[in-house]
């Protein structure tokens, strides 16, 4: 089956700046695909090109088999877009926002109205139908934006940092809603700089930095490939981390020295901690955890995902 999105050498330049630097990827129907990367990596720019609102500078792009340059309206008729910055109409009521938006797809008003009611249930906003958008919390606004993006029953739902700025509880509510859509077979394309979000939601993801794809795979495959099973995080105090790390040389598969801590990659963190103590080193705090995408990112770029 042809992929719903296919990019080859996809590039976007703004003057001298290359925001997206020749990336290749494909997204098959029904997949949940993530773009993980730090600020300025080119995630939103890529999303805008897929969303047929920004033309590419070079390379090839097909969305639902169509060229966005020629078939923007057709492609967008099949997309649901949750932008990084909300753009709900604050002057309109919650339910009105959905109806007005449905009209942009040429959907009859009565259909918009019945879908709006169903979507308000889905977004757990039934009680707020007649409120002004301004009365909603950040998490509710985000859910309303997702509901709005679903008014045209999209083939592909594009989410640009869906949970940035939300508290943990609001994020979980949102993830739950997205899970349901995924189960229904909606293709999800999302960007995030939260690795837990990527691990939760993405079947497959690409790690992007400076407009390039650094790695690609499922979250677990990426962790297997680029990190060990466990990580021991040791803190010796900021001025002593480097010195301690020098003495730990060779004790782990890989050592990362960060300003505030030393990371030791190994398959058995507890055993490693014992050997560290045997050496006569006494970290002020120590912690053993499973490797995450954060570690993958660190390995690939030498930088943390969230500064």
């Amino acid at each position: 089956m042809t992929p719903v999105i296919a990019a080859r050498g996809l590039t976007k330049t703004f003057g001298d700046l290359t925001a997206v630097d020749g990336i290749d990827f494909e997204v098959p129907a029904g997949e949940s695909f993530g773009l993980l990367g730090p600020n300025g990596a080119g995630k939103s720019t890529t999303m805008r090109m897929i969303g047929a609102v920004s033309s590419r500078s070079a390379g090839d792009l097909r969305v639902l088999g169509l060229d966005p340059d020629a078939h923007g309206p057709e492609i967008r008729s099949q997309l649901g877009v949750v932008p990084q910055e909300d753009n709900l109409d604050p002057e309109l009521k919650v339910r009105e926002n959905l109806i007005v938006y449905g009209r942009y797809f040429g959907i009859p008003r009565a259909t918009c109205a019945s879908r709006a009611d169903e979507l308000l249930t889905f977004a757990q906003l039934e009680d707020k139908a007649r409120n002004k958008v301004d009365d909603l919390s950040g998490g509710m606004k985000r859910r309303l934006t997702i509901a709005r993006a679903l008014i045209n029953e999209p083939r592909i739902l594009m989410l640009d940092e869906p949970t940035t700025g939300l508290d943990p509880q609001a994020r979980h509510v949102l993830w739950d809603r997205l899970f349901r859509l995924k189960e229904r077979g909606t293709t999800l394309v999302l960007t995030t700089h939260y690795m837990d979000e990527a691990e939760q939601l993405c079947d497959r993801l690409v790690v992007v930095d400076h407009g390039r794809i650094m790695a690609e795979g499922s979250p677990s495959a990426l962790i297997r490939q680029y990190a060990s099973r466990e990580v021991a995080e040791l803190r010796f105090g900021s001025d002593r981390n480097a010195e301690a790390a020098a003495r730990l040389e060779g004790m782990a598969e890989r050592i990362e020295v960060l300003p505030d801590r030393v990371l030791l990659y190994t398959d058995d963190g507890e055993a490693l901690l014992e050997r560290v103590t045997d050496l006569g080193l006494h970290p002020t705090t120590s912690l053993v955890r499973r490797s995450s995408l954060e570690d993958v990112f660190l390995r690939l770029t030498g930088r943390s995902l969230i500064e």
Binding site: G65, R76, S77, F105
Partner: peptide, 12 residues
């Protein structure tokens, strides 16, 4: 999906 897009895009 391509056919569906072509149809749905006509009215807007």
């Amino acid at each position: 999906p391509t056919a569906r897009a072509m149809t749905a895009g006509a009215l807007p």
